[in-house]
Protein backbone atom coordinates (compact mmCIF):
# COMPACT_ATOMS: atom_id res chain seq x y z
CA UNK A 1 0.00 0.00 0.00
CA UNK A 2 1.14 3.52 -0.73
CA UNK A 3 2.51 5.60 2.09
CA UNK A 4 0.17 8.33 3.19
CA UNK A 5 2.12 9.83 6.05
CA UNK A 6 5.85 9.59 6.66
CA UNK A 7 7.29 11.01 9.84
CA UNK A 8 11.07 11.18 10.04
CA UNK A 9 13.27 12.07 13.00
CA UNK A 10 10.59 14.19 14.63
CA UNK A 11 11.69 16.12 17.70
CA UNK A 12 9.15 18.09 19.72
CA UNK A 13 10.25 19.83 22.88
CA UNK A 14 8.62 21.88 25.61
CA UNK A 15 10.68 24.66 27.12
CA UNK A 16 9.56 24.87 30.74
CA UNK A 17 10.96 26.45 33.87
CA UNK A 18 12.01 22.97 35.00
CA UNK A 19 14.04 22.43 31.85
CA UNK A 20 13.59 21.19 28.31
CA UNK A 21 11.07 18.35 28.12
CA UNK A 22 11.93 16.06 25.24
CA UNK A 23 8.37 14.94 24.65
CA UNK A 24 9.01 13.45 21.22
CA UNK A 25 12.58 12.41 20.75
CA UNK A 26 13.61 11.28 17.28
CA UNK A 27 10.45 9.50 16.24
CA UNK A 28 9.99 8.05 12.75
CA UNK A 29 7.00 6.09 11.50
CA UNK A 30 4.66 5.94 8.60
CA UNK A 31 1.03 5.23 7.89
CA UNK A 32 -0.20 3.54 4.72
CA UNK A 33 -3.43 4.45 2.99
CA UNK A 34 -6.47 2.96 4.67
CA UNK A 35 -4.63 1.21 7.50
CA UNK A 36 -5.24 1.49 11.23
CA UNK A 37 -2.18 2.24 13.30
CA UNK A 38 -2.25 1.95 17.08
CA UNK A 39 0.03 4.21 19.12
CA UNK A 40 0.30 2.86 22.66
CA UNK A 41 2.13 3.88 25.77
CA UNK A 42 1.56 5.34 29.19
CA UNK A 43 0.93 8.97 30.21
CA UNK A 44 3.73 11.26 29.13
CA UNK A 45 5.31 8.88 26.63
CA UNK A 46 4.77 11.36 23.80
CA UNK A 47 2.03 9.53 21.92
CA UNK A 48 -0.36 12.48 21.85
CA UNK A 49 2.35 15.07 21.23
CA UNK A 50 3.68 13.11 18.27
CA UNK A 51 0.19 13.12 16.73
CA UNK A 52 -0.49 16.77 17.55
CA UNK A 53 2.83 17.60 15.89
CA UNK A 54 1.48 16.16 12.63
CA UNK A 55 -1.13 18.93 12.51
CA UNK A 56 1.27 21.46 14.04
CA UNK A 57 -1.07 21.88 17.00
CA UNK A 58 1.79 22.40 19.45
CA UNK A 59 1.42 25.85 20.95
CA UNK A 60 4.44 28.06 21.41
CA UNK A 61 5.33 28.85 24.13
CA UNK A 62 6.18 26.37 25.64
CA UNK A 63 6.17 23.73 22.88
CA UNK A 64 8.01 23.65 19.59
CA UNK A 65 8.76 21.15 16.85
CA UNK A 66 12.53 21.46 16.70
CA UNK A 67 13.43 19.00 13.99
CA UNK A 68 12.41 16.33 11.55
CA UNK A 69 10.02 16.11 8.67
CA UNK A 70 6.39 15.07 8.30
CA UNK A 71 5.53 14.19 4.72
CA UNK A 72 1.86 13.86 3.88
CA UNK A 73 0.92 13.11 0.27
CA UNK A 74 4.35 14.31 -0.82
CA UNK A 75 4.27 17.65 1.04
CA UNK A 76 6.33 18.40 4.15
CA UNK A 77 3.74 19.68 6.61
CA UNK A 78 6.42 21.39 8.66
CA UNK A 79 7.33 23.64 5.72
CA UNK A 80 3.79 24.81 4.95
CA UNK A 81 2.68 28.36 5.76
CA UNK A 82 0.03 28.85 8.45
CA UNK A 83 -2.64 29.39 5.81
CA UNK A 84 -1.61 26.20 4.01
CA UNK A 85 -1.62 24.01 7.14
CA UNK A 86 -5.09 25.30 7.98
CA UNK A 87 -6.28 23.87 4.68
CA UNK A 88 -4.88 20.48 5.67
CA UNK A 89 -6.38 20.48 9.17
CA UNK A 90 -9.90 19.11 9.12
CA UNK A 91 -9.82 18.86 5.31
CA UNK A 92 -7.25 16.15 4.71
CA UNK A 93 -6.29 15.15 8.24
CA UNK A 94 -8.97 15.27 10.91
CA UNK A 95 -8.77 14.74 14.64
CA UNK A 96 -11.04 13.17 17.23
CA UNK A 97 -10.12 14.15 20.77
CA UNK A 98 -10.65 12.39 24.06
CA UNK A 99 -13.05 14.76 25.74
CA UNK A 100 -15.97 15.60 23.44
CA UNK A 101 -17.35 18.13 25.90
CA UNK A 102 -14.28 20.35 25.73
CA UNK A 103 -13.60 19.91 22.04
CA UNK A 104 -17.05 20.99 20.89
CA UNK A 105 -17.95 24.66 21.25
CA UNK A 106 -20.61 24.85 24.00
CA UNK A 107 -22.29 28.03 22.71
CA UNK A 108 -22.79 26.90 19.12
CA UNK A 109 -25.35 24.40 17.89
CA UNK A 110 -24.18 21.04 16.60
CA UNK A 111 -25.45 22.02 13.16
CA UNK A 112 -23.45 25.24 13.01
CA UNK A 113 -20.25 23.47 14.00
CA UNK A 114 -20.62 20.89 11.24
CA UNK A 115 -21.80 23.25 8.51
CA UNK A 116 -19.05 25.79 9.33
CA UNK A 117 -16.44 23.18 8.47
CA UNK A 118 -18.23 22.20 5.26
CA UNK A 119 -18.66 25.79 4.11
CA UNK A 120 -15.11 26.76 4.98
CA UNK A 121 -13.28 23.80 3.48
CA UNK A 122 -15.57 22.69 0.68
CA UNK A 123 -17.26 25.99 -0.17
CA UNK A 124 -20.76 24.55 0.18
CA UNK A 125 -23.84 26.74 0.32
CA UNK A 126 -25.93 26.80 3.52
CA UNK A 127 -28.51 24.48 2.04
CA UNK A 128 -25.93 22.02 0.74
CA UNK A 129 -24.10 22.04 4.07
CA UNK A 130 -27.31 21.43 6.01
CA UNK A 131 -28.20 18.48 3.84
CA UNK A 132 -24.72 17.03 4.18
CA UNK A 133 -24.77 17.54 7.99
CA UNK A 134 -28.00 15.55 8.24
CA UNK A 135 -26.43 12.81 6.15
CA UNK A 136 -23.27 12.76 8.31
CA UNK A 137 -25.18 12.52 11.59
CA UNK A 138 -27.21 9.66 10.15
CA UNK A 139 -24.01 7.92 9.10
CA UNK A 140 -22.62 7.97 12.65
CA UNK A 141 -25.84 6.51 14.02
CA UNK A 142 -27.52 9.57 15.50
CA UNK A 143 -31.29 9.27 15.28
CA UNK A 144 -33.48 12.21 14.34
CA UNK A 145 -30.56 14.21 12.86
CA UNK A 146 -32.64 17.26 11.82
CA UNK A 147 -33.58 17.92 15.44
CA UNK A 148 -30.06 17.22 16.72
CA UNK A 149 -28.60 19.88 14.43
CA UNK A 150 -30.48 22.55 16.36
CA UNK A 151 -29.27 21.29 19.73
CA UNK A 152 -26.24 22.32 21.76
CA UNK A 153 -23.49 19.97 22.96
CA UNK A 154 -24.85 19.93 26.52
CA UNK A 155 -28.08 18.39 25.26
CA UNK A 156 -26.21 15.29 24.20
CA UNK A 157 -24.71 12.42 26.19
CA UNK A 158 -20.98 11.68 26.11
CA UNK A 159 -21.36 8.92 23.55
CA UNK A 160 -23.53 11.13 21.33
CA UNK A 161 -21.03 13.96 21.51
CA UNK A 162 -18.26 11.61 20.45
CA UNK A 163 -20.41 10.53 17.50
CA UNK A 164 -20.76 14.20 16.56
CA UNK A 165 -16.97 14.55 16.76
CA UNK A 166 -16.61 11.60 14.40
CA UNK A 167 -19.18 13.11 12.04
CA UNK A 168 -17.16 16.35 12.11
CA UNK A 169 -13.95 14.47 11.43
CA UNK A 170 -15.53 12.68 8.47
CA UNK A 171 -17.27 15.76 7.12
CA UNK A 172 -14.61 16.72 4.56
CA UNK A 173 -13.75 13.14 3.64
CA UNK A 174 -10.20 13.26 4.99
CA UNK A 175 -7.50 10.76 4.07
CA UNK A 176 -6.41 10.35 7.68
CA UNK A 177 -8.12 10.59 11.05
CA UNK A 178 -6.08 10.88 14.22
CA UNK A 179 -8.10 9.70 17.21
CA UNK A 180 -6.50 10.65 20.52
CA UNK A 181 -7.92 8.41 23.27
CA UNK A 182 -11.32 8.56 21.54
CA UNK A 183 -13.13 6.37 24.04
CA UNK A 184 -11.25 6.80 27.30
CA UNK A 185 -13.95 9.04 28.78
CA UNK A 186 -16.75 6.68 27.76
CA UNK A 187 -18.38 3.68 29.38
CA UNK A 188 -17.40 0.28 28.07
CA UNK A 189 -20.61 -0.50 26.14
CA UNK A 190 -20.49 2.96 24.56
CA UNK A 191 -16.76 2.52 23.90
CA UNK A 192 -17.58 -0.61 21.93
CA UNK A 193 -20.21 1.25 19.91
CA UNK A 194 -17.85 4.11 19.04
CA UNK A 195 -14.89 1.90 18.15
CA UNK A 196 -16.99 -0.40 15.98
CA UNK A 197 -18.37 2.69 14.25
CA UNK A 198 -14.90 4.12 13.60
CA UNK A 199 -13.58 0.80 12.35
CA UNK A 200 -16.56 0.29 10.09
CA UNK A 201 -16.49 3.81 8.64
CA UNK A 202 -12.73 3.84 8.11
CA UNK A 203 -12.97 0.52 6.23
CA UNK A 204 -15.95 1.62 4.17
CA UNK A 205 -14.56 5.05 3.28
CA UNK A 206 -10.93 3.95 3.03
CA UNK A 207 -9.73 6.42 5.65
CA UNK A 208 -6.47 5.71 7.46
CA UNK A 209 -6.71 5.84 11.22
CA UNK A 210 -4.18 6.52 13.95
CA UNK A 211 -5.63 5.39 17.29
CA UNK A 212 -3.75 6.75 20.27
CA UNK A 213 -4.56 4.85 23.44
CA UNK A 214 -3.19 3.40 26.64
CA UNK A 215 -5.62 0.49 26.42
CA UNK A 216 -3.86 -2.59 25.06
CA UNK A 217 -7.18 -4.33 24.52
CA UNK A 218 -8.47 -1.61 22.21
CA UNK A 219 -5.31 -1.84 20.13
CA UNK A 220 -5.52 -5.62 19.96
CA UNK A 221 -9.05 -5.43 18.64
CA UNK A 222 -8.76 -2.58 16.17
CA UNK A 223 -5.19 -1.92 15.01
CA UNK A 224 -3.42 -3.50 12.02
CA UNK A 225 -0.03 -2.24 13.14
CA UNK A 226 1.18 -1.04 16.52
CA UNK A 227 3.85 1.40 17.69
CA UNK A 228 4.82 1.15 21.35
CA UNK A 229 6.19 4.38 22.79
CA UNK A 230 8.21 5.02 25.92
CA UNK A 231 9.77 8.28 27.11
CA UNK A 232 9.36 10.07 23.78
CA UNK A 233 10.64 7.26 21.58
CA UNK A 234 9.19 4.36 19.66
CA UNK A 235 10.62 1.27 21.33
CA UNK A 236 8.85 -1.33 19.26
CA UNK A 237 6.94 -1.45 16.02
CA UNK A 238 5.17 -4.32 14.30
CA UNK A 239 1.87 -5.89 13.37
CA UNK A 240 -0.58 -6.36 16.20
CA UNK A 241 0.11 -10.08 16.09
CA UNK A 242 3.89 -9.61 16.38
CA UNK A 243 3.62 -7.11 19.23
CA UNK A 244 1.31 -9.30 21.31
CA UNK A 245 2.69 -12.73 20.53
CA UNK A 246 6.33 -12.12 19.83
CA UNK A 247 7.38 -8.93 21.62
CA UNK A 248 11.08 -8.06 21.34
CA UNK A 249 11.42 -5.07 23.62
CA UNK A 250 11.53 -5.47 27.43
CA UNK A 251 9.02 -2.64 27.86
CA UNK A 252 6.48 -4.30 25.58
CA UNK A 253 7.02 -7.57 27.42
CA UNK A 254 6.58 -5.77 30.74
CA UNK A 255 3.48 -3.93 29.62
CA UNK A 256 1.76 -7.11 28.46
CA UNK A 257 2.57 -8.86 31.74
CA UNK A 258 1.11 -6.04 33.82
CA UNK A 259 -2.41 -6.01 32.35
CA UNK A 260 -4.96 -8.22 34.07
CA UNK A 261 -6.80 -10.24 31.45
CA UNK A 262 -10.31 -11.58 31.61
CA UNK A 263 -9.45 -14.64 29.57
CA UNK A 264 -6.75 -15.80 31.95
CA UNK A 265 -6.81 -17.67 35.20
CA UNK A 266 -7.61 -15.44 38.17
CA UNK A 267 -4.93 -16.73 40.50
CA UNK A 268 -2.09 -15.59 38.27
CA UNK A 269 -0.17 -12.76 39.88
CA UNK A 270 0.52 -9.68 37.80
CA UNK A 271 4.13 -8.87 37.00
CA UNK A 272 4.37 -5.08 37.28
CA UNK A 273 7.19 -3.00 35.86
CA UNK A 274 9.15 -1.73 38.84
CA UNK A 275 9.84 1.94 39.29
CA UNK A 276 8.44 4.85 37.33
CA UNK A 277 8.84 6.49 33.95
CA UNK A 278 11.83 8.85 33.78
CA UNK A 279 11.78 12.62 34.06
CA UNK A 280 11.84 13.78 30.43
CA UNK A 281 13.94 16.84 31.31
CA UNK A 282 16.73 14.65 32.63
CA UNK A 283 17.33 12.07 29.93
CA UNK A 284 20.91 10.88 29.50
CA UNK A 285 22.82 9.19 26.71
CA UNK A 286 21.53 5.75 27.52
CA UNK A 287 18.33 3.79 27.04
CA UNK A 288 15.54 5.59 28.95
CA UNK A 289 13.98 2.29 30.00
CA UNK A 290 17.24 1.01 31.55
CA UNK A 291 16.41 1.80 35.23
CA UNK A 292 13.26 -0.35 35.06
CA UNK A 293 14.65 -3.05 32.79
CA UNK A 294 15.51 -6.45 34.16
CA UNK A 295 17.78 -7.20 31.20
CA UNK A 296 19.84 -3.99 31.30
CA UNK A 297 23.58 -4.28 30.68
CA UNK A 298 26.43 -1.76 30.90
CA UNK A 299 26.10 -0.84 27.26
CA UNK A 300 22.53 0.38 27.87
CA UNK A 301 23.88 3.21 30.03
CA UNK A 302 26.20 4.61 27.38
CA UNK A 303 24.38 4.25 24.11
CA UNK A 304 20.84 4.80 22.96
CA UNK A 305 19.68 1.61 21.23
CA UNK A 306 18.43 2.35 17.70
CA UNK A 307 15.12 1.03 16.37
CA UNK A 308 16.31 -1.93 14.30
CA UNK A 309 14.74 -4.70 12.31
CA UNK A 310 14.26 -7.90 14.27
CA UNK A 311 12.63 -9.75 11.42
CA UNK A 312 9.56 -9.73 9.21
CA UNK A 313 8.95 -6.00 9.34
CA UNK A 314 9.09 -5.89 13.11
CA UNK A 315 11.46 -3.40 14.77
CA UNK A 316 12.68 -3.03 18.34
CA UNK A 317 15.00 -0.57 20.08
CA UNK A 318 16.95 -2.88 22.37
CA UNK A 319 20.54 -4.18 22.26
CA UNK A 320 19.39 -7.51 23.59
CA UNK A 321 16.20 -7.98 21.60
CA UNK A 322 17.65 -11.02 19.85
CA UNK A 323 18.54 -12.67 23.16
CA UNK A 324 15.17 -12.05 24.77
CA UNK A 325 14.09 -15.50 23.82
CA UNK A 326 11.23 -17.65 24.88
CA UNK A 327 12.12 -17.27 28.53
CA UNK A 328 11.52 -13.54 28.44
CA UNK A 329 8.37 -13.85 26.41
CA UNK A 330 7.02 -16.50 28.76
CA UNK A 331 6.69 -13.70 31.32
CA UNK A 332 4.01 -12.10 29.20
Amino acid sequence: MAKLLEIEHLHTQFFTSAGVVEAVNDVSYDVAEGETLGLVGESGCGKSVSALSVLRLISWPPGRIVGGSIRFLGKDLLKLSDAEIRRVRGRQIAMVFQEPMTSLNPVLTIGLQITETLEHHLGMSDAQADARAVELLGMVGISDPERRLKQYPHHLSGGMRQRVMIALALSCEPKLIIADEPTTALDVTIQAQILELMKDLSKRLGVALIIITHNLGVVARYADRVNVMYAGKIVEEGTADQIYHNPHHPYTIGLLASVPRMDQHRGKRLVPIDGQPPDLTKLDNGCAYRPRCRWAIDRCANEIPPLEHVGDGQKAACFRSHELGDEARAVS
Binding site: V218, V219, A240, H245
Partner: peptide, 24 residues
Amino acid sequence: LLSAVPVADPKIEAERQHQVLPGE
Protein backbone atom coordinates in the same frame (compact mmCIF):
# COMPACT_ATOMS: atom_id res chain seq x y z
CA LEU B 1 -20.65 -5.93 29.12
CA LEU B 2 -18.14 -8.78 28.96
CA SER B 3 -18.27 -8.89 25.20
CA ALA B 4 -17.60 -5.14 25.02
CA VAL B 5 -14.31 -5.39 26.91
CA PRO B 6 -11.45 -5.87 24.47
CA VAL B 7 -8.88 -8.49 25.46
CA ALA B 8 -5.20 -7.67 24.96
CA ASP B 9 -4.64 -10.40 22.39
CA PRO B 10 -5.34 -9.91 18.68
CA LYS B 11 -5.82 -13.64 17.99
CA ILE B 12 -8.50 -14.01 20.65
CA GLU B 13 -10.07 -10.71 19.56
CA ALA B 14 -10.33 -11.90 15.95
CA GLU B 15 -12.30 -14.95 17.06
CA ARG B 16 -14.50 -13.38 19.68
CA GLN B 17 -18.12 -12.56 19.15
CA HIS B 18 -18.68 -8.85 19.55
CA GLN B 19 -22.15 -8.12 20.70
CA VAL B 20 -22.60 -4.36 20.59
CA LEU B 21 -25.36 -3.16 22.86
CA PRO B 22 -27.59 -0.57 21.19
CA GLY B 23 -28.67 2.67 22.85
CA GLU B 24 -27.51 4.28 26.04
